[in-house]
Write a protein that binds this DNA or RNA. Structure first.
Lengths: 229, 229
DNA sequence: CCAAAAGTGTTCTCTCTACACCCATGA
DNA sequence: TCATGGGTGTAGAGAGAACACTTTTGG
C-alpha cells in the first residue's frame, strides 16, 4: 500500500468462499454440488459457498460452512486461489476465494446434505456449473493431484481401514488414468506409512485382500516426494 | 447500485494487492522493498502494494501497480494466495492478495524506483517486514521454486544473453544451495530450449564462456518436468 | 475349470549424482 | 605456474515402466 493514511477512499467488496468438496465412494471421485435455490442462477448447480464474516479469516469461514453442511470438523482444507473477475457474478462485485476439501463420505452427515438439496456427482460427469465454478473445479483437481503426488493421500478420503485395491482406485480416480497393480503396491508400501492388519476384505475378490491403515504418529513429512504417478 | 441487492446483509472488505518482486543482479536474488512513508507501520519495510479498483481484476491491479513503479508491462506475475486474518492490518479489515513478480533488473526504470523510496534487498538478508509480509515472501519463494523446477526460468530474470554460469547462479539463488556444474549444464542443455551464440563473455572467467539465449518460439510447454534440483 | 484380484519378481531404461579430467587463459 | 571457471565423460545407485507369473477362491 503506497498510498497514505486511511483507506477510506478505496472501495470495499463482498468476499465469498466456494468449496470444491471431494469425496470418494464406490470407486468414484465425487464432488458435492448444490442445486441453487435462489437468484442469481437459480436452479443451476454450484459449489457450496458462503460469505466471509467480520470476525473470521477465510479459513475459518470455510470450516464454518463445511461444518454446517456436513457436520464434520477437522476437515482437510486448502486454499486454491481467489477469483476476482469484476464480471464473474452478474449480481454484483463479489470476489470468491476457492477452497478444496477432502471429505470422509463414511463419516459425514448425509441426511443434512440431502436436506439441503445437495448431490454427489462423479468428477467424470459433472453438470454445467454456475459462473466460474468449473474453473475452480479444474484448479482444485490440479492442486489435489499435486498433493497426492507429494504425499500419500488416503486418510482424508478413505475409511480407517482399506485395501490396496481401494487405495489404488482412489489414485486412479485422482489422476484419471490406470495404474499398474504391482508397481503401485511396491511404491506405496515402500513409503513405510501403512501397516497391515490381520483382517481381510473378501467382498472385492475371491482370495481376499488384507486391510491396511495409516500408522499412528506418521508426521506427514515421512517422505519428500512420492514420485510420479 | 444494482450491485449486491441480494447480498446486502453481508459485509464488504478492502481488498489489497501485495507484490513480492524478484529480481536478479550480481549473482543475488533480490526483492524490491519499500520504506513505508505513512501509517500504519510508518518507517518499516514492506512489499509494494495497492488496492483493487472497481473495474479491474486483481491481476489487472497487480499489473497496474507494477507498471506504475517499474515502468514495465508484460511482467510475469503469479498469484500466491490471499491473506485474510482479520487482525493482519491493525488499521482495519483488509484482505490482501499476494502476488509474486519476476523482473528484468536490466530493463526496469531504476530512477522511478529510487524516487519512491524503494530498495533492492538480497533474499539472504531481509529486514523485518511489516504485518504478514514475511510470510508472503516465504510463500512466494516456494512458488518460484516450484515453477523453476517445472520449467527453465531465466528469460524473466536474466538479460537477453547470459552464460550458463549466470543461469546456474540464478538457480543456486532460487534453491539456496549449490548445484553441480556439469550436471546442471547437461540437464539444462538437454531441454533444448537454449541456443548458443558465437559471442563469449570473458569478464567472469579466464577462458571465456559462450553466451546463450532462449530460442524463439519455444512454447514454454516444451518440457513437462525439469527434474529435481 | 475359469475369472479376477492378490501378491511377488525380473528386466530394461532413464535420470540423478558424484566425481574425474582436460582446456584455456590472465595474473 | 597456478587458480579458476569452461566443458566433457563415466560409473554407480535408484526410480519408474512393462510385464510375467504364481496364488487363492467363489461361481
Amino acid at each position: 500500500m503506497i498510498m497514505g493514511e486511511k483507506y477510506n477512499k478505496f472501495s470495499k467488496y463482498f468476499v465469498a468462499i466456494d468449496c470444491v468438496i471431494f469425496g470418494y465412494e464406490d470407486g468414484d471421485l465425487r464432488l458435492l454440488l448444490y442445486h441453487r435455490g435462489f437468484e442469481p442462477a437459480k436452479g443451476q448447480w454450484s459449489l457450496l459457498g458462503g460469505f466471509v464474516g467480520d470476525e473470521e479469516s477465510s479459513d475459518d469461514a470455510a470450516h464454518r460452512i463445511l461444518k454446517a453442511i456436513t457436520g464434520l470438523e477437522d476437515i482437510y482444507l486448502e486454499q486454491v486461489q481467489v477469483y476476482t473477475n469484476p464480471k464473474r457474478d452478474p449480481e454484483g462485485r463479489v470476489m470468491s476465494i476457492g477452497y478444496y476439501a477432502l471429505i470422509r463420505v463414511d463419516k459425514h452427515n448425509s441426511d443434512k446434505v440431502r436436506e439441503n438439496g445437495a448431490h454427489w456427482w462423479s468428477v467424470k460427469g459433472l453438470p454445467n456449473l454456475v459462473f466460474d465454478h468449473q474453473e475452480m473445479v479444474d484448479n482444485a483437481l490440479h492442486k489435489l493431484q499435486q498433493k497426492a503426488g507429494l504425499e500419500l493421500v488416503g486418510s482424508e478420503l478413505l475409511p480407517d481401514k482399506f485395501t490396496l485395491l481401494q487405495l489404488r482406485r482412489l489414485y486412479e480416480a485422482i489422476f484419471q488414468r490406470e495404474l499398474d497393480t504391482g508397481n503401485f503396491r511396491k511404491k506405496v508400501l515402500s513409503l513405510n506409512v501403512l501397516e497391515r492388519l490381520e483382517e481381510k476384505n473378501t467382498t472385492e475378490s475371491r482370495r481376499g485382500a488384507y486391510y491396511f491403515q495409516f500408522k499412528k504418529g506418521v508426521t506427514d513429512k515421512s517422505f519428500d516426494r512420492l514420485g510420479k504417478f
